[in-house]
């Protein structure tokens, strides 16, 4: 039995600088795309023949739902990298991804409820999509609770990484089983393969918004990562220099 641990130099200053450069382009782009997408969705798309104008919330609801699910995978992949290669940056990315994803999931549920009132006449229906979203929210909350329960935060993030990996394998199974449980739900309207049942005039702004929210997610992740980097390296020379420059 023999093993070796190698010191992994955290290249934090490099990550901090690189993410700063990236954000200079990404952040304006994301905000512009979201503003344009909202205007497109609200003003330049036809009303739905059954739901009238209330359907327009899908331009927020659908992108937020899609990205909140993707966010769980981002968290799990970052967690796996931090577990296997002990990369500090991945560790921080996982910690940052958790709250962003949870907030997006919550937004998805909130917009779903707001959409539900005019559509179904009630804020809450145990529909398959909503139910899956609730399970996803609890998966996120579990990660939070576990993180908070550990005093040693290095170990906390490793434990959360394991939990989110288990969740990742389980998510497709949860979605499938909830779909099966609720076989009366609306069929998925957007398919990237095969024919789309949604009119192109409504589809394009939706796809636009999905890309926009993905971009926004990336920006939030990078911003959070930068803050966490500065916090954890507060005692190093480069971090002090950065803070002094901002002041």
């Amino acid at each position: 039995m023999a093993w070796t641990w190698f010191h992994r130099l955290g290249s934090s200053p490099w990550v901090y600088r690189f993410s700063g450069t990236l954000l200079r382009f990404l952040l304006p782009l994301a905000i512009a795309m979201i503003v344009l997408g909202c205007i497109w969705g609200i003003a330049f798309t036809p009303p739905d023949f059954r739901q009238g104008n209330s359907y327009r919330i899908i331009y927020i609801h659908v992108p937020v739902s899609v990205v909140s699910l993707a966010g769980y995978y981002v968290m799990a992949v970052a967690g796996a990298v931090s577990l296997i290669w002990r990369l500090k940056v991945a560790d921080m990315a996982m910690r940052v991804a958790a709250p962003i994803g949870a907030v997006l999931t919550f937004l998805a549920l909130l917009t779903g409820a707001v959409w539900g009132k005019p559509t179904w006449g009630t804020f809450w229906v145990w529909d398959a999509r909503i139910t899956s979203m609730v399970v996803l929210l609890f998966l996120y909350l579990g990660v939070f609770a576990l993180y908070e329960a550990f005093d040693n935060k290095t170990l906390a993030s490793k434990a959360c990484a394991i939990l989110s990996l288990v969740g990742t394998v389980n998510i497709p199974i949860i979605y499938k089983s909830v779909d099966w449980w609720y076989s009366l739900h609306q069929p998925a309207s957007i398919k990237f393969t095969g024919e789309s049942t949604i009119d192109p005039s409504m589809l394009y702004p939706l796809l636009w918004m999905i890309v926009a929210v993905y971009l926004l997610y990336a920006c939030l992740l990078l911003l959070g990562l930068r803050v966490t980097l500065l916090e954890s390296e507060a005692k190093t020379a480069w971090a002090r220099k950065v803070v002094m420059e901002v002041k």
Binding site: M1, A2, W3, T4, W5, F6, H7, R86, T154, L155, K158
Partner: peptide, 18 residues
């Protein structure tokens, strides 16, 4: 003893059973 891999930095080699 290998019970604290997350708490260690640097190079630690154990060449024997223990």
């Amino acid at each position: 003893a290998g019970l604290a891999p997350q708490s260690i930095e640097g190079q630690l080699v154990v060449n024997s059973e223990f």
